[in-house]
Structures are given as C-alpha cells and as structure tokens.
Nucleic acid binder design. Structure first.
Lengths: 235, 235
DNA sequence: CTCCATTAATCCAATAATGATCCAATTGGT
DNA sequence: ACCAATTGGATCATTATTGGATTAATGGAG
C-alpha cells in the first residue's frame, strides 16, 4: 500500500513542482552546486504555498538531487543523478529516451505515406471516426483535451492505412508523447493561434482522404507535421 | 472505436465511456500511474452526467485498470497497461505476428527516406561498413550467409541516417528475420539470378550514398525494395 | 402505462493545499 | 562578541479539492 501511495503521490498535483525543478536541473538551468532561490521566492515563482513547495523540496532532497542547509539555502547536488537506471529494458526504454527531434523525423517519414495509403483504403467508418475526432478537437475546452483528440485523429489516419504492424509501431512511438518532458514541449508550443492552424490542416487532410486524393492527403499531412516540428523545435 | 459514437447516438451510455477511457489507457495517452482528470472534469469532457461517469469509473476500478482515492483522485493502475517490458516487448511480439506484406510495406515507407537522410549524414565509417557488407555478401557461399550480410547492409544504411529511434524500431522489425516462416519465404524467393540483381541494386544504393546523392539513394533503395517485395509476395 | 438508464442537485468524508506563526541555524556587518 | 537579517524547519487551523453516496426528476423503449 505504501508503494502504491508513493506511486500515486508521484503523479499527484503537489509534485508538479518537483517535475519543474527536475527539468531545470536536467536542462542545466541549475547546474550542480548551484544555489536555488530561497523557498520564499520559489513559492511565488511556482504559485504554490511555501508548505507545498517545501514538500516538493523534501522529495528532491530524499532523491539526493538537492541538499538543504538551514540559514544557507538549498543547493543542487554535485552528483547530478545520471538517469533512472531503466533496468536495461529493450525497445521501450530506448524509445522513451528518444529526442523530440528524432520522433518528429520518424513521424515525417511514416505518417504522410500512411495518409497516402489511407486515401485508398479508408473505410466509411474510418472517415466517420476522423470527422468525430475533428469536431471533438475543435470543441475542446482546454489544451489537454485538444491534445487528446489530436492524437486520436493521427491514430485514426494511421489505422486507416490498414497495416497492423504500422499501427503497432506508431502506438509504441506515440506512447512517448505522454512523457512529462515531451508534454512540456507541447504545452509551451501550442498557442491558440497555432491550434487554429492545426485544426485547419487537420481538416485538409481529412477532406483529401474523403476525396480519395492520396497525393493531396500526403502533402497536407506532411505540411502539417513540418509545421508541428517547427513549432516544437524551431521556436 | 465505435465507442466514439457517443455524441449523436442516444447510446451515449456508460459502456461507451468505459471504452473511451480504456482506449486512452491502451494507447498510452494515460500511462500507468497517471492521474486522470477529476470526475467533475471528465463528465464535461465526455458530455455525460457525473453519475454515469462514476458508474464507468466503477467498472474500470473493478477491472483493476484504475484505482481511486477520496480527496486525491483516480489513477491508472501501474499494472494495468503493458507495464514491465512495455511497448517494446508487445511490439516485438506483434511484429513477429505481422505479415510479410505488412513488413515490406513498412520498409518501403521508411528505408528509402532513411537512405535519403543517410546521404547527408553518413560518416566515412558508415560508408566503409557498407562496403564491407557488399563484399561479404558477394563472396557469400550460401543463401543464409548472403542473407546475413544483406541484412547488415540495410541496418548500416538505417544507422547512417543517425536517428537512434529509427534504428531501434528497425531492429525490432528486423528481428523477424530469424522467424522460421519468414526464412522459408526468403529461401524460396531467392534464386541465384535474383541474388545477382540484389547485389547490383545494393551497390547502386551505396554508390549514391558515396556521392551524397540523396534522391538517387532513395530511388535506388525503393526500386530494390519493390523488387524484393515482388519476389517475396508477387507471383 | 411501467421499467430502466440518465440526469441533476445535494451533502458527506478523506485528502491536499493554503496561510500564518514561531523556531533554529547561518551569514554578514558593527 | 554581538546583533540583525536571512533562510530552512516545523506546526496548526482553515480552506479548497475530490471521490463517495443519496435522492428526486427526466425521458425514452418496450
């Protein structure tokens, strides 16, 4: 039960702060030995109470990522935790370690061609599903909900190519997009204006699939993914 | 994915919501340990009352797919999804079950474009390795030995694209080379005449990579793979 | 009509987060 | 040596959040 609580706690709200600080340590913003801002400053920066902030710092201290001294401050440990010691799993751990740039490059290889195939193979049910994803995405009230239906649409397009192996591979790669580090990228890059652009590009792809126009579908999806990559990495 | 028909259908029942959430868990949108949105948020997202939403969550809880805690939230069970070996293992196992047609289709999507990238990124060591694969393949005394160096060449080309994720995915797909059923297909399709054709096509790809001619490399590799597919699957 | 699922409106209980206050160790200047 | 300011450490009452549960109203399908 304790293990379960720990696991759930790790995903809970308070440690959103933990993830933020971990990110800042990982990307070098706060290198080893750096003195963190004071608790009273961090609580304002992260918009949480000092109590919650301290709970997060406690987690980081127990993980050995920071050390704290009364009257002096908190500091990033000189021994930056190398990695998660992922137990040497096969493909999953390596996939999870893939960079956004690599992922987008793979998607750019596969998805446009999958769309071209889908133009000739999509069933009425496939097209119906895509339409629903479109409307749901457009009605989405917040970014996470939009992301959800955005992802579903891409899955639907891949699925319409009627290649089970392709779908499986895509699913595996797609799982990475839920990694906290990747999520941060998306949130930062998804402005309302860009979301509108995405919706328009999505619709063009689906229209092309409706028209059974493979070339158009491939081109539209490629354009969309190039846009996404630029927003994600280029900004 | 008929579960998506909850909008217009009067069948927007609890079971539909169950299927939707199951889908989101299965495709990795909500990975193990993830805290899913609050009930009051989900009821709006799925356009159902909190009562039916809770009934759905109850089903998922009884299935062990989620756990719920008052005051904290609901979480995806850590042992519900793929878990341990994760997508890697499941991907590998499903790849083994994939049909040769599906595999060749995937290779045709990925490899030519990888060759195009490799033309711009291959190091001298990469090209050297390809040359060695070529010579070894040409000197091969029997079919299995030729197959070995043939496979190594393709791996080398993929590797020269300098996309670790792509290499990992390709390795997983390539693992099927050891499957008995697939081996039988190859042996049956690989006549001495065809082997000579393959060697010529291989050399054209490598020459193009030497010349840093991406278009030529992509075209040559695509032609080769089309030939292989035709020999494998066609009449 | 009845039956059944859904909806809507409350209230409850467990947990998380907050805000305030005080304590203890360290630092830097006098 | 001393003192004031700074900084992390700790506790407590209060508020907000979140799943749990009940009840009455609504609305088709048979």
């Amino acid at each position: 039960m304790d293990a379960l609580n720990l696991r759930d706690r790790a995903a809970s709200g308070a440690s959103a702060v933990v993830a933020l600080i971990e990110q800042s340590i990982a990307d070098g913003t706060w290198g080893p030995g750096t003195k963190l801002p004071t608790e009273r400053e961090l609580e304002q920066r992260f918009k949480v109470s000092r109590n919650t902030l301290r709970k997060s710092l406690r987690v980081l201290e127990e993980q050995g990522k920071i050390v704290r001294h009364v009257g002096r401050g908190s500091f990033v440990s000189s021994e930056a935790a190398p990695k998660d010691t992922g137990a040497g799993q096969s493909l999953t751990s390596r996939i999870i370690g893939a960079s956004p740039a690599e992922i987008m490059e793979l998607r750019l290889m596969v998805e446009p061609q999958a769309a071209e195939l889908a133009a000739g193979r999509a069933t009425a049910a496939d097209l119906q599903r895509m339409e629903e994803c479109l409307t749901h995405a457009e009605r989405a009230q917040d970014i996470p909900e939009f992301e959800h239906w955005d992802g579903m649409l891409h899955v639907a397009i891949i699925g319409a190519a009627k290649n089970g192996l392709l779908s499986d591979v895509y699913d595996a790669v797609n799982a990475i997009r839920n990694q906290p580090e990747w999520a941060r990228l998306k949130v930062r890059s998804l402005t309302p204006a860009r979301r509108a652009v995405y919706e328009e590009q999505h619709r063009r792809v689906v229209v092309a699939l409706h028209d059974r126009d493979g070339d158009q579908a491939r081109a539209a999806l490629q354009e969309h993914l190039l846009q996404v990559r630029a927003n994600l990495l280029g900004s």
